[in-house]
Amino acid sequence: MPTQQSYYVPAQSKWPIIATVGLGTTLYGAAMIMVNSTQGDSTAVSWLVFAVGSLIMAYMLFGWFGTVIKESRSGLYSSQMDRSFRWGMSWFIFSEVMFFGAFFGALFYARVFAVPWLGGEGDRGSSNMLWEGFQATWPLLANPDPEAYPSPSAIIGPWGLPLVNTILLVTSSLTVTLAHHGMKQGNRRKLKIWLAATIVLALAFLFFQVEEYVHAYTELGLTLTSGIYGTTFFMLTGFHGVHVFLGTLMLTIMFIRIHKGHFSAEQHFGFEAASWYWHFVDVVWLGLFIFVYVI
């Protein structure tokens, strides 16, 4: 049963409206870039719009989070407020899970239904009439229409870099937990060391991921345009990579704040939120590792 202390309701804030303008401009610019470049028009203005939007977004992020941090440090937030943030963060992560769910669903569907059907198996196997000679395999190394979607020559095996990356991420989940223990014990040294270790592991992960992409694009012909295997591979690992990047950014900001002496053993939700996010990113990776690489 929630007990009510005085609940902090902030006064007017300019940040949301700035955030709206920022997000709208950024996305409008992004759309302009895409549409103009497909039509072969100049994209100079589009990039400008996009850049302006991004700058507004950056300004907003610093300003908004700065305000929240200031309020938090001046003791305006009760434990009830803290719970609101917790609910907020948990449901946000849930929404991210559903977002990844859509892409995992696409992978599953392509693999279990679409590709076998095209290859002549199952309920809609007569579809193979349209794709004479097409064989269903997974990973899909020969697309139904290789002229439209050039087939990859090979795919990335799980037991090289991906395994290394798995180990890196699992370890980083561990280190961030150790850092959290440090925080709760009031042991700042422990906190900093383990958090720094986490960030290093995260950067290593990102580095290897980029390396893997370069390898796929330059040597294997495995690209976004190389059919459904490349499509699902890059979309899943790509979105995951973006999330790792965001998570790393969050952890880095936490590191800086910790350096500045923010947080206490009792009150450190900002840090916890970042670590939740980090664990989520880790779990998604495990799903990826199994469903994209291993099976």
Binding site: A106, A114, P144, A148, Y149, L224, G230
Partner: peptide, 15 residues
């Protein structure tokens, strides 16, 4: 539409 993936195109194994 913009990046050549084949989620919804059978020629690339999508549907």
């Amino acid at each position: 539409i913009n990046f050549g993936t084949s989620f919804f195109d059978a020629s690339g194994g999508g549907d």
